[in-house]
Design a protein around this nucleic acid. Structure first.
Lengths: 341, 341
DNA sequence: ATGGGTATTGCAAACGTTTGAAATTTTTTG
DNA sequence: CAAAAAATTTCAAACGTTTGCAATACCCAT
């Protein structure tokens, strides 16, 4: 690993000043044609790469922005990132992706690191731990810097920043309403971890929809999961052993719904005839599993794109004072697992 | 967006020199206890964050490394990244993740950008276009810098660099052998795009296994896909309409296998009774779909970890001259879709 | 008070690049 | 051929931080 060639190196070699080299490489008009060509050829030959770090220091800007997410190992999250990148990359921005693994400590550490690295904005999908703890001290310095901060996916009301979320509430409501409309009366809910925004919004959609149709909200039909397939297995088995079995299950996401379907089948019940199943996320395989999974679509890519636009708006107009809160609609995609149509 | 507080700002405020501030903030012993406390308190109050950019310049190192992948929207790829991060993050490295979307142009652009940003190593999973074109000029400057370069997942023989790949060949071989051993005789293959390393290695495993058991390799049983679910639909339909229908399908990945299963069912055939199906990747949902999918597991996380270790070895020992090539084994996970056991 | 020692602080250079202004060289013109 | 104009190159400062060395301030004993 040899040290990179610098402008000074080239200047020494050609017995000229660094300024000349710099200008030559940047095609500055006041440089002699021959000089320019020679210097450019030589730079090319020795593989000169301008040192962006020094430029970042000089210009006190970095054209890089931080993206903090709980995980990237997941269709939805990575779609968001692709959305952000899709808008910002063509404008020359570099993404600095940080994975918190749902841990407050990592999230906090990453915020500091990004601030230290002088990113020009931060996109933050708050980790579960952070949400639980309600600690937002790690964002204080972001506030002091008045740096563009955009909450993604999980909003945090108590902080002056932009946000792009999806309408979990109405998505869940629509899902449950669909089940009611197709004749289901005992609708169970495999809930996410308590306290998280997505979890609670979807739960609220579930309960309020039941209420609307005069159906009782029954404790025994509501069980927590942690979003993962495995965490749906025991709860589903539990539901199937109830005196009064449910005739439908609304899963907090597709993973959970898929886990539920597996258990239902293993216990000799049919989907959707005996028990209808609806998920959330509309993950890419949902149309292809059997039975195909009815699910609420979250426009991940669009969320990323909108978030990026909000960021651009902040930086271009300096109207940082008016935080933009965008709530994108979610859409129920009806397939076979819910008995359809 | 106010400009960040600098050491100079603090020094001016306290009518002392920047050196003093710097030392105070770094707990240098030669600083007066009172001065130290005052400065630290003030720095804390105004939200001082040391400018890492300037430090990177000063130390001519950045503790950041580049990761270039075709996509992150995929279990396997993101597992690799998590593996790299798992090893390197605790050591203070920052990951710079770049998504090429399988495009040579983007890949090339990103290499330049990373070089410019003075990353200390590059992990590269070559894009499909790059592989097809055989162009590796964009890596020339990496070579000139003699910067640690580690090929991931898809090796490139013609370049002096480390690599971590998995044994696609033996994985595919095992998959097909399993089908042969369970009595299948007309085994079709939904192949990946021609020319790609993974595609061809798996294809070779397929053909050589057939050869080993004296089975013919038949043109009509081999159809290309592009790894996506949708791309498996028509090819599978085509296979089902053959005079002599296959009794098994080996998909180049799980997505393709899942697509195939859907079509098989839709056409009124049963999996695995009529047609056995095997995939590749062992994606997280494969145990939970119905029938559960037999698949070859690729240890994504482990690949990332090993790649990171190779990188560390390069930087620690300066023995860059001996490129390490690691081939991790893949493992066949037998489930229901292949008729089991 | 004076010298010697220690504790504390400041100076200046360095990292690599850009850029306005000044300096130098070359060309043009009368 | 000299002076003015144009073309080309160099100087120096700046971005923010660290650090070896020099400088200053403080304390104690003689």
């Amino acid at each position: 690993m040899n040290k990179p060639v610098t402008i000074k190196d080239i200047a020494r070699k050609f017995r000229c000043s660094p300024s000349t080299v710099s200008r030559a490489l940047n095609n500055h008009p006041s440089i002699n044609e021959d000089t320019r060509r020679n210097l450019q050829e030589y730079a090319q030959k020795v593989g000169y790469q301008r040192n962006q770090v020094s430029l970042n220091l000089l210009n006190t800007k970095t054209a890089s922005i931080g993206v903090i997410v709980p995980t990237i190992n997941n269709y939805y999250e990575s779609a968001i990132i692709e959305g952000i990148d899709g808008v910002l990359h063509p404008l020359g921005y570099t993404l600095n992706i940080c994975v918190t693994n749902e841990q407050y400590l990592l999230e906090s550490e990453y915020v500091t690191k990004l601030l230290s690295n002088r990113v020009e904005g931060i996109f933050l999908s708050v980790s579960q731990e952070t949400y639980d703890s309600g600690h937002y001290e790690h964002l204080e310095n972001v506030g002091k810097r008045n740096l563009p901060l955009i909450f993604i996916d999980r909003d945090y009301e108590g902080f002056s920043a932009g946000s792009v979320t999806i309408d979990d509430y109405h998505g869940a409501f629509a899902a449950v309403e669909h089940l009611v409309n197709t004749g289901r009366r005992r609708i169970a809910h495999l809930k996410g971890p308590n306290g998280m925004a997505v979890t609670e919004q979807r739960f609220r959609g579930y309960t309020e929809c039941l209420a609307k149709y005069g159906l009782p909200v029954e404790e025994e039909l509501i069980i927590n999961t942690n979003f993962k397939v495995e965490s749906a297995l025991d709860p589903t088995a539990q539901l199937l052993e109830l005196e009064q079995r449910p005739d439908a299950i609304f899963g907090v996401n597709d993973q959970v719904a898929i886990g539920a379907m597996k258990v239902i089948r293993e216990k000799g019940r049919r989907v959707p005839e005996d028990i209808a199943v609806v998920g959330f996320d509309n993950s890419p395989i949902s149309p292809y599993i059997s039975p195909s999974l009815t699910s609420v679509a979250r426009p991940g890519r669009q969320i990323g794109e909108e978030a990026a636009r909000i960021f651009l708006n902040y930086t271009n107009t300096a109207k940082k004072d008016v935080p933009v809160h965008l709530v994108l609609p979610s859409e129920l995609i009806i397939r076979d697992s819910s008995g359809g149509r």
